[in-house]
Design a protein around this nucleic acid. Structure first.
Length: 883
DNA sequence: AAGACGCT
DNA sequence: AGCGTCTT
């Protein structure tokens, strides 16, 4: 029989586990998350793979032969976090107790040791599996060597990478990957590659020429920029190839037969596992394999609901237990659901069955009491609304739960939540259905495949529900969830369904006028430049302005000349072309995003745009809007503002009512800091920027100049954003010193604001997070970084988040009460949009007075602060008129 | 992916 | 400070 060999890249795997598994410590506080994940893999090896040879390779700290040749190799890497370093020490101790060979070699990396031993094994006809989280080792793959690749997300589940996989994924052979990397480089290892060549181009070139030698032999086949880039980067490509190629002839002391494996869970190893408090692992190791199959969702029994009888069974179960867990999925036209009720699982295979279920749910006696727990309840609400079901009694949304627990995470789908909170690897929709071109249509998939997948996720939903509400309670956010986020989601669903009506004819006319002017400008710019070029390309524009027209370079970006508005404003005096470019820029933005860009998104039937509102994106608690983003429709310049004329009420007898908070963030700051002087300004309803100017420049309110008010305004904004003297000075065109004087004077006049700001930062450093007035929490790990820039950025977030977030909480509360009042009073008026401090209602003309007063009342009442909240409201026949 | 720019 | 979109 062929021998089987398993080699682990210890550094790579422990790193992956460290970042992939949530924090874990022993009772004494020793961090163990990474080693826990690592041991999970060891158990799998012991119980499932049973290799003949086994070893774990590590990097050593000493410089390698790569560093010796190129000093920059792996330069700029962050130091290893302390909590990870300590786990390396523990892991090696554990491996020694397990009598697992530890492979290290001065001057070489783990990859080189593994490559060498894998090739040695091959000569002895052994099959090698390399466990790593590093794609670099893909180059080692051949008939007898494959990679078990682990990603942060999928924990101890591996993707088997063999030659076919690589061909399918990259379109080249494993060996050719070395040359691909030589061209594209690898920023994480500081391997330069060829500047301007990315993954796509590198693969294309290597597919055609196989090696960089082959490529440079035929360099004359190529032309233009690409050829130029390649010629310039020739030395760099060869250097990169040297750095990226794994050495398979390292002078490793141990040989494959020294790695003979015969179990690793020795008594002393088990003792150490007990010390590390890995109880579940000890149980697995001690023989009972029941634990191994626990929670394997694909073994969960479920009922396929496909007829009246089985539907009645499900509804009966819900009637009896009054609680149902729902995971609904929609892909294209397909719609299906997995449910859990009374500890039974059910699968609804298609839209018709879902519709029957929702209808049936409304009819059962306890319908209003049925607690609904789901993942992304806003989406579920759309489904309920589509089939005209009852108003659901939502009690928990796992997606929002995940967001509240850590609003800085990027993904909250069930598999991400399961990985983080249940330490379990489940496939996610992207993995399951594929993406882009290879995406599989759900309609074409076998129910036999779809059902267990969905049921498994529904089971994860259920188990997350057992965990997350408790954590949210511990963090003091239950009230936030129950009284703000859950009631809000149905309102957001309604806003999405209603959409905003567009005067299509007017928008088309506007877009045409933009385009006509753009054509004229293009010609004028070409004439002034004496050449034609792509004005949209910052790169080409840079060449024209700074190389050809020899204008002075004000600022550079990391890729070339900066051509930002600030730079162009300074260049205005040097050349008439600048003004034209500025006008071109603003018009092309206007047309691209709000002219022809918006036209693309209008529903031709209803003449409306239907934005998506996201409740789990902004780390401060704000909402966001997309496709189209209705929260950034122009207002500052008159020309841009014209766009607002095309946003109109949904019918001729209707009207828009717009209400916005005045200075809500500064009022929140006044409240949070308790500063008497700032509170006084708002109690007297003074113009806040004029008052600030009067304070810091020591002049009476009626003696404040326009310039002084402008500077005060910038200071007030800077305050909210936690700006420092440096950037304030830059913005106002004054020196750092002068800006610091402004800030010092401000703090002298508003001493409690100063004290508050200091406090917030101190608290953020102590606790690791900041909170809003309603307890919404945001973690700021960067505040403890060794990188000064990151610390400063963390401090700014610490200062801004409580203010921005409290304002977000307030308007969310207002949305809920406004919406309730509109319904209670039997009005046809509907909330259609929120823009951070502004609400827009589409109402019958006859309702306008009532709606105006509801908006003002409810928004002003949404929070009781130590300063009044004031609201300005207007009615009109377009968004232009009301704001 | 980066730069630029629209909003609060 | 926080977002989303367009362009190259």
């Amino acid at each position: 029989m062929r021998k089987k060999s398993i080699l682990i890249d210890g550094n790579s795997l422990l790193y992956r586990m460290f970042y992939g598994i949530r924090e874990m410590t022993t009772a004494k506080g020793v961090p163990t998350n990474a080693i826990y994940g690592f041991v999970g893999v060891l158990v799998k090896i012991e119980q499932e793979y049973r290799p003949d040879y086994f070893g774990v390779a590590f990097d050593l700290k000493a410089p390698t032969f790569r560093h010796k040749k190129y000093a920059d190799y792996k330069a700029g890497r962050d130091k290893m976090p302390e909590d990870l370093g300590s786990q390396f020490v523990l892991l090696k101790e554990l491996l020694r107790k397990m009598e697992v060979p530890i492979l290290e070699l001065s001057g070489y990396e783990a990859d080189d040791i593994i490559g060498t031993l894998a090739k040695e094994g091959e000569r002895q006809e052994a099959d090698t599996f390399i466990i790593t989280g590093d794609k670099d080792s893909f180059q080692l793959v051949d008939d007898r060597i494959s990679i078990l690749y682990t990603t942060t997300r999928s924990g101890n589940q591996f993707t088997t990478v063999d030659a076919d996989y690589i061909m399918e994924r990259y379109g080249v052979t494993p060996l050719e990957l070395i040359d691909v990397k030589a061209l594209m480089g690898d920023p994480s290892d500081n391997i330069p590659g060829v500047a301007g060549i990315g993954e796509k181009t590198a693969i294309k070139l290597i597919k055609a020429y196989h090696t960089i030698d082959g490529l440079y032999d035929h360099i004359d086949d190529l032309k233009g920029k690409q050829k130029e880039k390649l010629l310039n980067g020739r030395d760099s490509a060869y250097e990169s190839r040297f750095l990226g190629e794994i050495c398979v002839m390292a002078p490793v002391e141990k040989h494959i037969e020294d790695l003979a494996f015969d179990g690793m869970f020795t008594d002393s190893a088990k003792e150490m596992l007990a010390e590390l408090e890995f109880k579940s692992i000890l149980k697995k190791v001690d023989g009972s394999d029941a634990v191994l199959t626990d929670h394997q969702g694909d073994m969960l029994p479920f009922t396929r609901v496909e007829d009246q009888r089985s539907l009645m069974g499900l509804l009966g179960q819900i009637n009896q237990f009054s609680r149902v867990f729902i995971y609904a999925l929609e892909e294209g036209d397909a719609l299906w659901m997995a449910l859990r009720a009374g500890s039974q699982y059910y699968f609804l295979p298609d839209a018709a069955m879902v519709e029957a279920f929702i209808g049936g749910l409304a009819d059962i006696p306890v319908a209003d009491d049925v607690e609904i727990i789901g993942q992304d309840l806003k989406q579920l609400t759309h489904i309920f609304n589509r089939f005209g079901g009852c108003i659901p009694n939502y009690t928990f949304d796992t997606m929002i739960g995940g967001y509240l627990l850590n609003p800085s995470d990027s993904r909250y789908h069930l598999s991400a939540l399961a990985a983080k909170y249940l330490d379990e690897a489940l496939p996610d929709d992207e993995e399951f259905f594929g993406k882009g071109k290879t995406k599989k249509a759900a309609e074409d998939m076998e129910v036999g495949v779809l059902a267990p997948y969905t049921i498994r996720l529904c089971d994860a939903l259920y188990r997350l529900w057992k965990l997350l509400p408790e954590k949210i309670e511990e963090d003091g956010m239950t009230c936030l969830m129950d009284t703000i986020e859950l009631p809000l989601l149905a309102i957001m669903a309604s806003m999405e369904e209603l959409g905003f009506t567009i005067d299509v004819g007017a928008l088309e006319a506007l877009s045409h006028s933009f385009e006509k002017r753009l054509l004229e400008l293009t010609q004028e710019i070409y004439d002034l430049a004496g050449e034609t070029f792509n004005i949209n390309s910052t790169k080409q524009l840079g060449v024209v302005l700074f190389d050809n027209l020899k204008l002075p370079v004000i600022k550079k970006t990391k890729t070339g000349y900066s051509t930002s508005v600030e730079v162009l404003e300074e260049l205005k005096l040097f050349h008439p072309i600048i003004e034209k470019i500025l006008e071109y820029r603003s018009l092309s933005k206007l047309d691209g995003t709000y002219g022809k860009g918006l036209i693309k998104l209008i529903d031709p039937e209803t003449h409306r745009v239907y934005s998506t509102f996201n409740q789990t994106v902004a780390a401060t608690g704000r909402l966001s809007s997309s496709d189209p983003n209705l929260q950034n429709i122009p207002v500052k310049t008159e020309l841009g503002r014209e766009i607002r004329r095309v946003f109109i009420p949904s019918a001729p007898d209707r009207i828009l009512v717009d209400a916005d908070y005045s200075q809500i963030e500064l009022r929140v700051l006044a409240h949070l800091s308790g500063d008497e002087n700032l509170i006084d300004a708002f109690k007297k309803e003074q113009d806040i920027h004029t008052r600030t100017a009067s304070e810091i420049f020591g002049v009476p309110m009626d003696g404040v100049t326009r310039e002084q008010r402008g500077h005060a305004k910038a200071i007030n904004f800077g305050l909210i954003y936690g700006k420092q003297a440096f950037s304030l000075g830059k913005e106002l065109g004054i020196s750092r010193k002068e800006a610091q004087d402004y800030i010092d004077t401000y703090f002298a006049r508003y001493p409690k604001v100063a004290a508050y700001m200091e406090n917030v930062v101190t608290e953020a450093k102590e606790k690791g997070y900041v909170t809003t007035l309603w307890g919404r929490r945001r973690y700021l790990p960067e505040i403890h970084s060794r990188n000064r820039m990151l610390v400063q950025s963390g401090e700014r977030m610490a200062l801004n988040t409580p203010i921005q977030g409290t304002a977000a909480d307030i308007i969310k509360k207002a949305m809920i009460t406004v919406s309730a009042r509109l319904a209670q009073e039997g009005l046809k008026a509907k909330l259609i949009l929120q823009v951070h401090d502004e609400l827009i209602v589409d109402a019958l003309e006859s309702e306008q007075e009532q709606v105006l007063s509801i908006l003002i009342q409810e928004m002003e009442r949404a929070a009781v602060l130590s300063v009044p909240l004031t609201v300005d409201a207007h009615c009109g026949h377009s968004w232009y008129e009301v704001k």
